[in-house]
Design a protein around this nucleic acid. Sequence first.
DNA 1: CCGAATTGTTCCACGTTGTGGAACGGCAGG
DNA 2: CCTGCCGTTCCACAACGTGGAACAATTCGG
Lengths: 257, 257
Amino acid sequence: MTAETGGDGRSSSSGNAVEKALRVLEAVSMPGAPHRLAEIAATAGVPKPSAHRILGTFAERGFVHSHGGGRYAPGPRLRAMAAQVAGDDDRGVDQVLAELQRQVGHTVHLALRAGDRAVYTHKVEADQPFRTSSRIGMWLPLHSTAIGKCVLAHLGVLERDDVLGAAGLARRTPATITERDELDTELAEVRRRGYAVDDEENEASIRCVAAPLLDSSGSPVGAVSVSGVAFLVSREQIEAFAPEVRHAAHSLAAVLL
Amino acid sequence: MTAETGGDGRSSSSGNAVEKALRVLEAVSMPGAPHRLAEIAATAGVPKPSAHRILGTFAERGFVHSHGGGRYAPGPRLRAMAAQVAGDDDRGVDQVLAELQRQVGHTVHLALRAGDRAVYTHKVEADQPFRTSSRIGMWLPLHSTAIGKCVLAHLGVLERDDVLGAAGLARRTPATITERDELDTELAEVRRRGYAVDDEENEASIRCVAAPLLDSSGSPVGAVSVSGVAFLVSREQIEAFAPEVRHAAHSLAAVLL
DNA sequence: CCGAATTGTTCCACGTTGTGGAACGGCAGG
DNA sequence: CCTGCCGTTCCACAACGTGGAACAATTCGG
């Protein structure tokens, strides 16, 4: 390990060509299929001509599909890669999630962090035939969800400011925490307890508990959650699942990292 | 530059840095999670030091996870991206596939081409509770499957030689076509009819029909297929689904491209 | 239907960045 | 102990990406 100072140093603005490519690829992959060039350039934080050139390369290889005049969508090659990645890790992950689902009887989610949001990657539905509006690939805000609060709580102060500054504290329900002070208090509590609760803060009638997945350096990678319908599960009942959720989180960290 | 002797002429373009990055990313995404550096470098067709540098960049951004000592696996960020891509296109795709499944009553697959193989990206199971050993993300050979033959049939001769040279014509069942001449005849037939049949050539007791998805330039992007258990569906019966499969393929081409 | 604002695309001189063969150290298997 | 193989580091060279600015196409508003 040569003397790498933990801070950003040069990488702050753009840096590596490969890095830009990754950010562009990520931007193209965002929901809302056909994206415009300017939009992608902005999202990726890359100058317009560079984005154009990179997207051209992607298009040549079939990673993105160019819808004519400056509109880009994920291409077949990227879709194939996505299917491979999504299908491969299912070895142990689904097992752990299914086990958790059996223990608690409610819908179980795994979400991974992607910048200033989290993305559902796995889901095990509850036995009860209750509507769950979530879907794999759907992304959720960090400030109003149990999963998101787990992530935020374990970010460095610097990065947290960055992320919250970019995403804002949008009100999602009457219970959503929209004050930064209040959120910070909550996050301290999350760190202390090792799990987070969402008491109808993101969606009315939905309560969740979540526990964070931390990598070897302590950075939050994502979180597991249990979601219950409010009139079936009290706040106390949901919170009582915390031990099981934390256990699952630890198992998943072992499998995923 | 390395003056390759006939065998593997793909050295066509290692020029672009982004291109190399893409190939490396693809190599990391392949099934069999922790890959070794040399393996990735070979698969991607990139010199070892370059692969190392690129993987380092990926690791910094969480796209791959470095298992220490030259072992790399898809990272959280890549998984999140994969979930987004896989989840987003479900708009119309699943509808079309479900419609096809209703018409034919058997298991329906969508696979996309990735280099010298195809990858299942979508699946709608048959009503009948029959084992189907396929899974999203699983990859299948091109020469012994209906889906693969659709792809091969619509490749340029040059690229077909390349692909078949790399992958070979491995025998999968007694019925597998392992002679290049015979395969070429079959592929001409596939082009003529607009669909391909797999009569227990890839897996014993499984018969399939497939129709290709062609992009605007006529290149094969993937294929849709219907798979039936051999002792329930005769070759004639499976082949009778061809019109429906072709129809679905056209609908999907419109949605995906 | 036309002009104005926005967006996609091309160009190009500049120097930063990636490049990859070769050499080094570490690890395993004979 | 020696012998491959593999991951990692090094470095001189120039190719490649870079991005501001100019240009073309398209959209929007009146």
